[in-house]
Lab assay of single mutants.
Amino acid sequence: KDKDLLKGLDQEQANEVIAVLQMHNIEANKIDSGKLGYSITVAEPDFTAAVYWIK
């Protein structure tokens, strides 16, 4: 199951987060929520590491 990592990002921010996570071998998903911006989700086992790397 995926957990929400970040919400309300613009496309550039979302792409930067995806890139950082991929560099650390964390699979992440970018979801277009329309006017609400983009959300990033990661698998539950990767959540703690993902939070660490996006600081």
Rank of each mutant, 00 (worst) to 15 (best):
S33A: 12
T41H: 05
N25H: 10
F47S: 01
A19C: 13
W53H: 06
K35T: 11
L36T: 09
K55M: 13
E27D: 10
K55G: 11
N29A: 08
T48W: 14
Q13T: 12
D32M: 10
V17L: 10
D2E: 11
K35E: 12
E12H: 11
E44D: 07
K1S: 08
V17D: 00
K7G: 10
A43M: 08
V42Q: 00
A50E: 03
D46C: 09
D10F: 04
S39E: 05
V20S: 04
S39H: 06
D46N: 06
V20M: 14
D32Q: 08
I54Y: 05
I18R: 02
L9Q: 00
V20W: 15
F47H: 04
A50C: 05
K7C: 15
A50I: 05
I40T: 00
K3R: 13
Y38W: 15
V42C: 05
A14S: 03
S39V: 13
A28M: 03
L5H: 01
L9A: 02
Y38E: 00
S39N: 08
A49V: 06
I40F: 02
D4L: 15
N25Y: 07
Q22R: 14
A28W: 06
W53F: 07
Q11H: 11
A43N: 08
I26K: 00
K35D: 12
E27K: 15
K55R: 09
I40R: 00
E44M: 08
G37D: 03
I31Q: 05
Q13G: 06
L6S: 03
K35M: 09
G34F: 05
L6V: 09
D46I: 06
I31R: 07
L6T: 02
T48D: 15
L36D: 12
N25R: 06
P45F: 13
L6P: 01
L5F: 06
I54S: 04
T41C: 11
M23E: 09
D46Y: 11
S33T: 11
E27Q: 14
I26N: 01
M23K: 12
M23T: 08
P45C: 13
M23D: 07
I31A: 04
W53M: 04
E16S: 11
D46E: 05
G8S: 04
V17Q: 01
N15W: 07
L21F: 02
V51Q: 13
G34H: 04
V20C: 14
K7Q: 11
K55A: 12
L9M: 04
Y52G: 07
S33F: 14
V17N: 01
L9R: 01
F47R: 02
A19L: 11
P45R: 15
E44S: 08
I40E: 00
A14G: 02
D4G: 09
S33G: 15
D46F: 09
M23G: 07
T41L: 07
Q13W: 07
D2F: 15
K30A: 12
T41P: 00
N25D: 08
A14V: 04
A43Y: 06
G37M: 06
L6I: 11
A43K: 13
E12P: 05
K55N: 13
Y52E: 12
G37R: 06
G8T: 04
A49L: 12
A14H: 03
K1R: 12
P45W: 14
Y38R: 00
A19W: 11
A14F: 03
E27M: 15
G8K: 03
N29E: 06
E27Y: 13
A49T: 08
H24A: 06
S33Q: 14
Q22P: 00
A43R: 11
A50N: 01
A14D: 02
A14N: 00
N15K: 06
I18L: 10
A14W: 03
A43E: 05
K55H: 12
N25S: 08
D10G: 08
A19H: 09
A50V: 05
G37T: 07
K35L: 12
S33N: 15
I18E: 02
L21H: 01
P45E: 15
H24Y: 08
